[in-house]
């Protein structure tokens, strides 16, 4: 089932077409990346999808609701992390979460436990009764994310969730996103500038330019769309690195193959090639210790799309 369906969704502020004719779908349980630079229309789209702004043209269905006419019902089932943490800094963490638990209709009997569990999950339990005004930027961001997860939403909008977090906290947020998507089946709509994050977490991504959708698909689909190779790193045993290279040399579509210690770096045009490569390596008795997407792949795709748009304009 689709969690989000938009058809020609548009929002104009006078002459400014903040969101222009967006049509896409997001499946339930999917982590969907929404990429774009500042002012591309990511936040406005989120507000339209959550029923806090009315579209100028077009429409959307979110979790089966029309956000314009059923906003209150919809927002009971969605959670959001806005661009700024939007916490009441005069209150402590427990009070901040308790207030929102009430607003989101968390059963009274569950509120205390739920609040303490969330604070524990986001490593804030030991500062739970301190005023939020004294928190670091990262702690505020973690608390705001905890608030977004508090009522166990079916769809969660995250606007730059790791923008002010240290690497350990970022990993915690990534784990939480995977958990709610994989284990709880919730859909995640992730607005981000962080292309590495999008590549690691998202099943599919959409790229937005000046309110217009310029591409949508998996990173490999987007790569194919712009004719760009996807980069991968493959780790094997030191004694087998030459053997592995000879296997990859024989695979159609593999290019830019280099050896870096026990790591083979290579590029492919289709993600579907990866299972074939792994099967061939295993058949040749090569022990594979790890494989991961090269960090620049989505970034390269993004800039290729961006440059294409700039040249087109």
């Amino acid at each position: 089932m689709d969690a989000i369906i938009t058809e020609g969704l548009s929002k104009h502020f006078k002459e400014n077409r903040a969101v222009n004719e967006l049509s896409f779908t997001v499946q339930e349980g999917e982590v969907f990346g929404f990429l774009g630079h500042n002012g591309a229309g990511k936040t406005t789209t989120t507000r339209l999808l959550n029923g806090v702004l009315e579209p100028t043209n077009g429409g959307c269905t979110v979790l089966g609701f029309n956000p314009t006419t059923q906003g209150e019902l919809l927002r009971q089932k969605t959670g959001i992390l806005t661009e700024t943490p939007a916490l009441d800094e005069r209150l402590n963490a427990v009070d901040n979460l308790t207030m929102f638990a009430d607003l989101y209709g968390v059963p009274r009997a569950d509120v205390k436990k739920r609040v303490l569990d969330m604070l524990g999950s986001f490593d804030l339990a030991d500062r739970a009764t301190e005023k939020v005004g004294g928190y670091s930027k990262g702690m505020k961001q973690r608390l705001a994310i905890a608030r977004a997860f508090l009522h166990r939403p079916r769809l969660i909008f995250l606007d730059e969730p790791t923008s002010s977090l240290d690497p350990i906290s970022s990993r915690g947020v990534h784990d939480m996103i995977r958990h709610i998507s994989q284990d709880e089946g919730a859909t995640v709509f992730l607005c981000t500038h962080n292309l590495t994050e999008a590549q690691r977490l998202c099943h599919r991504v959409a790229v937005l330019e000046k309110g217009r959708l310029v591409a949508i698909g998996t990173p490999s689909e987007l790569g194919a769309q712009v004719g760009m190779a996807l980069k991968y790193h493959l780790e094997v045993g030191e004694s087998q690195i030459r053997e592995a290279k000879s296997v990859l040399d024989g695979v159609a579509g593999v290019s830019e193959l280099t050896i870096d210690g026990t790591v083979l770096r290579f590029s492919i045009t289709k993600k579907d090639t990866i299972p074939d490569i792994l099967a061939m390596l295993v058949n040749r008795g090569v022990r594979v210790y790890g494989i991961e997407a090269g960090e620049s792949a989505l970034e390269d795709i993004y800039f290729a799309l961006h440059n294409a748009e700039v040249n087109h304009a």
Binding site: V52, E72, R75, T82, T84, A86, D88
Partner: peptide, 14 residues
Amino acid sequence: ERKTLEALLHTPLS
């Protein structure tokens, strides 16, 4: 001013 309003506007309140 405190930028707390947006989170409130995204709640289920009418």
